[in-house]
Amino acid sequence: MAGRRMRVTEGETPSRTAARAAAIADQMHRECGLLLELYRKKESLGTDLVLSDLLLVSVPPASSQLEVQDQLWRIHSALGQCRSLLERAIVREEQAVGVTAVGKAEYQKQRKTVKDRLALLLASTRELLKAFGGTAGLTTTTNNCQEPDGSTELFEVKMWIYRIYRELEYWSKAAITLLQALAGPGSVRMSTRRRRNILR
């Protein structure tokens, strides 16, 4: 799925394109929630974890004063940074924790699902950004996200990975909010069957 692009039919309006992208974001948000649950279970982490509220990615703050293309660029750039963080987390987890510990099939499958859905959401927001006359350049810097070095305690590595999964959940929710607004009222209330057809 990583190489796929959102299918936009000729003559499709931006609101319909936004509705399709919102459906993808909604699916990703739910999948991120499941990934967090599986990760907490795998690592025996409680649900009462206290984490910093500082976001890991670096984009301009949200503002209703931003033009539509700037709002789309903000979300697209944040998602691109999330992809970079996720790729780093996967490599680091397999190095630090080990293949046998990481090799729980359900967790690994869900992690891949989130990664693939993120690639599809990135492609869809890129298409939508172009439709609104914006450019799809990505910001690559991250905020307060120094990757744990080789001497770091294993628990700190696990918490860094957990923060990245939380970040994915946060930005998928932010994408839903913007994309639903662009789609217009009622545009993204679609049946499960239609959503499955969009995500195929």
Rank of each mutant, 00 (worst) to 15 (best):
S172Y: 06
H29M: 04
M6H: 06
N144K: 12
I176V: 08
V114C: 00
L86C: 07
L121M: 05
R196C: 12
K109A: 09
F132I: 02
P60G: 13
Y170R: 00
T100G: 02
R194H: 15
R195K: 15
V8Q: 08
L66R: 01
Q71W: 00
Y165D: 08
R196Y: 10
L45I: 01
V91W: 09
L120M: 04
W171L: 00
Q81V: 10
Y39H: 11
E43K: 11
G137V: 09
P60T: 06
A21W: 05
S84Y: 06
A18D: 01
Q81T: 09
R126S: 08
C82V: 15
S63T: 06
G184R: 01
V57M: 00
H29T: 09
M1K: 02
E94S: 12
K115A: 10
R196T: 09
R5G: 08
V59D: 05
L49N: 08
G11Q: 12
P61S: 12
G103W: 03
G137D: 06
K42A: 14
R200M: 14
S187C: 12
E31T: 06
G150A: 11
R7S: 14
K41D: 10
A131D: 09
A19W: 01
R92K: 15
T140P: 12
T135A: 13
E93S: 09
L122F: 07
Y162F: 10
R4T: 15
Q110P: 01
V99Q: 06
V68T: 14
T140V: 13
L199I: 09
L120I: 02
I161C: 05
Q81L: 11
A62H: 15
L72I: 07
S58A: 13
R20D: 02
W160R: 00
E87R: 08
R5F: 12
F132D: 02
Y107E: 07
S124Y: 03
R92Y: 07
S15T: 07
G11H: 14
E43T: 12
R200T: 12
T140E: 15
K115R: 09
Y107R: 04
R20V: 02
G186W: 04
M190C: 05
K109H: 14
E31D: 11
L38K: 07
R166L: 05
R4W: 11
H76K: 03
R117L: 01
